[in-house]
């Protein structure tokens, strides 16, 4: 390598290679991804978020929420759990057998063997697939996040450090908009000792005129405004909450399968 040109060529080749692999490849593979469907159904996934949620993402971005929160559910493994759906004609034999078998945390093969054993004594079973990992234990999602989850996000706010909890599934955990607003206004009022900064600047404190606004926050005494005043969220705060409540990782997809609970049908 005596002249600059050969150095240039080597650098060009090396960078070009990684550019093709880590830029062009993903752009072609993921950048042109289209809608998929929820596993075993024809429901399209993901659903285009409403306008408020899209605007809320901009508030999320502008205030750097991703500095402390991630939006990516992690998954360590996948297991099969065998569940009895009908005891059949010999319930005693079946319950006998059940007490001897391991029914939870099985691989797919172990599960089908267990199911076959139960079937042999007349019981009907169902094999339920479940994701495992710290995030599932914490109730932060039913499966890992996959690229389809972010199809409508602009910009995608994955985050890289969890100083606070993961928010990818916050819309499933927290269905009360008022509670999220109170949390944004005074985090310590919801979680004592929380490290989260307060976002008071997304709210207005104003004199109550006539009857109190339906939007006004209900806060514990220590955080409440003085008498005769009320705290109402700005449009930004409302959009942000709309965005958060729209975040879900709760439907199964082909690339991240699990058996949903039939709660919706009960």
């Amino acid at each position: 390598m005596k002249n600059g040109f050969s150095v240039f060529c080597v650098a060009l080749a090396a960078l070009g290679l990684s550019w093709i692999g880590l830029v062009l490849g993903p752009v072609l593979q993921l950048g042109h991804e289209s809608l998929t469907t929820v596993l075993n159904s024809t429901d399209p996934y993901p659903i285009q978020p409403a306008g408020a949620a899209t605007l809320g993402l901009q508030v999320y971005k502008a205030n750097g929420c991703a500095a402390c929160h991630t939006e990516q559910v992690q998954q360590d493994g996948v297991v099969c759990n065998v569940v009895l759906s009908a005891p059949g004609l010999h319930p005693d034999d079946v319950s006998n057998l059940l007490s001897q078998l391991d029914l939870n945390g099985l691989t797919d093969q172990e599960a089908s063997i267990a199911a076959a054993k139960i079937a042999a004594v007349g019981g009907k079973t169902e094999i339920r697939v479940a994701s495992t990992g710290g995030d599932m234990n914490r109730g932060w999602g039913l499966r890992r996040s996959v690229s389809a989850d972010y199809l409508y996000d602009q910009p995608v706010q994955l985050g890289s450090v969890r100083i606070g909890p993961d928010l990818a599934d916050i819309g499933t955990r927290q269905t009360d908009a008022k509670a999220i607003l109170a949390h944004l206004y005074a985090p310590q009022s919801c979680t004592a000792g929380s490290l989260m900064p307060s976002f008071k600047f997304l709210f207005v404190t104003r004199k109550v005129q006539g009857s109190p606004s339906p939007d006004a926050l209900a806060l514990p005494q220590a955080f409440a405004p003085p008498d005769g005043f009320e705290i109402v969220p700005t449009q930004d705060a409302k959009n942000l909450v709309a965005y958060l409540m729209n975040l879900h990782v709760n439907v199964p997809l082909y690339e991240a399968p699990f058996t949903p609970s039939v709660a919706a049908n009960k």
């Binding site: 929820v38 596993l39 159904s41 996948v78 169902e126 339920r128 697939v129 199964p252 058996t259």
Partner: peptide
């Protein structure tokens, strides 16, 4: 492996299809 863990026989999948 991914195929093996698709919840195929499950009643939930069946009910989801039935709903459609």
């Amino acid at each position: 492996q991914l195929e093996a863990y698709q919840p195929k026989s499950g009643s939930a999948a069946m009910i989801a299809r039935g709903k459609q």
